[in-house]
């Protein structure tokens, strides 16, 4: 797939089951703070605190957590521009901080708040530079450029100096720049930050296609949970540098110990239904709202209601993950205090 001088299949550890591997990875920052005239206090910040996970080739993973959780720090270590303070980290079998340049040919990076594009020059100039920098064969460069320009709707922007682009246009320009050399993995640090609904939808659509059709592995951080809901089957939650959750999006509900709501329409007004562990939280005429643990099967509950009550119609409301995650963060904070 990637036309680089290193053949992935010959590399130890670069097999399909673990394309990205972190084992007890840590990053500790030494922060010096002035506390008075000539007085300085040294403090250590554990930005990433013993994180382990693996990502197989071709997966699209969401990496979320509150501000300062350590997401960007993790991505910087994955690209090799930060050296871990401890633990073991491999991408395609390569230690990123040791062989940053060799790895660079195989990865693409978009930092939503920064740009790789040449500020004062037309967008196309930046792409020509990528062509040289990644030594992309001419035919492939042209093919990739055409495809990206079409998919990301850039044709009208190629001659525009980057400083004149809007945020959404620039972001699309940056995403294209990160993909011209057919990277095997794409790291996106807040790719939808500051974009409007339409731009977000376009970027998401593009990423979905990229992952599905080219098999590009994607690791994405975001504060917009819709990004995750629409793109990622797997999500990792990090807080204070620790991995709090790693699994399917649906499973977050169990961990967050949240509730789903079953809305039932009965034939007539009745007293509150009794089907433990569900409990009625609201009654409005013949309609009743039953909250039940998200981990419980809705089917079983529905069957019981249907057997015991005159049921006309029903619907299940999933809790939105924002609530779930907020709850998770809050619980974590509580535990930290006590």
């Amino acid at each position: 797939m990637a036309d680089t001088n290193t053949d992935p299949s010959t590399q130890a550890g670069a097999d399909t089951d673990a394309f990205i591997e972190l084992d007890g990875v840590e990053k500790v920052f030494d922060v010096r703070k002035k506390t008075g005239f000539l007085k300085r206090e040294r403090r250590q910040v554990r930005a990433v605190d013993s994180i382990s996970f693996t990502v197989p080739r071709g997966e699209m993973v969401g990496y979320i957590g509150p501000n300062g959780a350590g997401k960007s720090t993790t991505i910087k270590m994955l690209t090799g521009i930060l050296t871990p303070s401890g633990g073991r980290l491999r991408v395609a079998g390569i230690d990123p901080s040791r062989e940053r340049t060799r790895l660079a040919h195989r990865i693409g990076v978009v930092f939503g708040q920064r740009t790789t594009l040449w500020w004062d020059l037309p967008l196309l100039d930046s792409y020509k530079l990528m062509h040289r920098m990644y030594r992309i064969p001419d035919a492939r460069y042209r093919e990739n450029l055409d495809r990206l320009v079409e998919l990301l709707d850039l044709s009208a922007l190629l001659d525009v100096p980057v400083r004149q682009l809007s945020l959404g246009q620039r972001m699309r320009g940056d995403i294209a720049a990160a993909l011209l050399h057919d990277p095997e993995v794409l790291y996106l640090d807040e790719p939808t930050i500051g974009l409007d609904v339409i731009s977000k939808a376009r970027v998401r659509e593009f990423l979905r296609e990229l992952n599905a059709e080219r098999g590009t592995t994607v690791l994405l951080t975001t504060h917009d949970l819709q990004d995750i809901e629409q793109l990622c089957s797997r999500v990792m939650v990090i807080d204070h540098g620790r991995l709090m959750y790693d699994g399917p999006l649906a499973g977050l509900h169990e961990v967050g110990d949240s509730e789903r709501v079953l809305v039932v329409d009965l034939e007539r007004e009745l007293p509150p239904i009794e089907v433990p562990p569900a409990r009625v939280v609201k009654v409005e005429g013949p309609r009743q709202w039953l909250a039940f643990p998200a981990a419980e099967s809705a089917a079983v509950l529905v069957a019981r209601v249907a057997a015991e009550y005159p049921l006309v119609d029903l619907s299940v409301r999933e809790p939105d993950i924002e609530t779930v995650i907020a709850k998770m963060y809050a619980e974590q904070a509580e535990r930290a205090i006590s």
């Binding site: 521009i81 940053r100 660079a104 990076v109 920064r114 790789t116 920098m133």
Partner: peptide, 12 residues
Amino acid sequence: TGEIAVDLYRPA
């Protein structure tokens, strides 16, 4: 500003 991050991960 930290923009240097972008220069550092380039293969150059």
